[in-house]
Amino acid sequence: MAMSVNKKGLWAKIKQYRFAYYFLAPTALAMLLLHLSPITQGIYMSFLKLNQFTLQQYLLAPFVGFENYYKVLIDPGSPIRIGLFEAVRNTVIYTIVVTVGTLGVGMIVALMLNRKFFGRSLVRTFFLFPWIVPTYVTGLLWGIIWLKQGGLVNVMLADWLHILPFKPSWLSGPNTIWAIIIPTVWRYWPLSMLMLLAGMQTIPDELYEAADIDGASPWRKFWMITWPMLRPVWFILILFGLIYNTYSFNIVIMMFGFGAGYPGEWGDLMMTNIFRNSFQLWNFGTGAATSVLLLIVMIVIVNVWFRYFKKSEELR
């Protein structure tokens, strides 16, 4: 595209920009070696019958075509399907709720912080605290906070405030999905808050003053000024939120059985499911096939999101 406009040949252009290529070379090499090469192998693996018996042969393991995909997607009797539906369902719920939750909580707190008051930067720093706690510690810590008998949540809700008539079990049954969503939101919202706050500070005051003169309510001011002006920020936040939360691993693995146990049918995510299939059931081939399918879904989602963004950008 660009080349047709430019009169110079490709080689001349490359020569002209050789400085840029020098600068890019080490990264490109690293990416070829440690991204492209393993990912190609990973995709190829998904077509192999790779389990604990054939792992020694690795890429020379018997080629089975789409059998792994058949096992994951269609074959109702394959052991790999056990728990797969639950993992997909949980991942969808988890990703959407966590992404929206971090954005929502971050937005509310950013709005509260976006005023002039004494000790503002100190409060903001304190709000950033959960974000510094490593995710494996988050999983560990909340695993204890959710304990049935002695956990902080049950003690507070049942013993002190008497909101709950009994102490529910958070780490088993359908409650589990909340037991993993809430810590994740707790861990990640400060980053959203920080970025949204920075975005808010670039919105010119004149816009709000004009709205005030027109007698707009705060609610209307938010949706007509703040939200659209923050578009570049929440676009990125939702994009990376979707990607990273789909691939969430540490919190769940540390909260349930510390890597050895099964998080339960309401706590299992795609990543823990694939990890268990690959490293505990030794089904590397089907594990790779599931990963590839996940990757395809992710590419579709990201593309849809970009397209939506471009479209709405043009409409503005």
């Binding site: 990416m31 440690l34 991204h35 090469s37 393993p38 990912i39 192998q41 990973g42 693996m45 990376f240 990607i243 789909t246 691939y247 691993f249 795609m270 990543m271 694939i274 990890f275 690959s278 590397f284 594990g287 790779a288 990963s291 590839v292 996940l294 990757l295 992710m298 590419i299 990201v302």
Partner: peptide, 14 residues
């Protein structure tokens, strides 16, 4: 694109 790849895919090949 690298951000979209699940890290677990790299694990065995690496």
């Amino acid at each position: 694109a690298t951000q979209m790849i699940p890290a677990i895919m790299y694990l065995i090949p690496l």
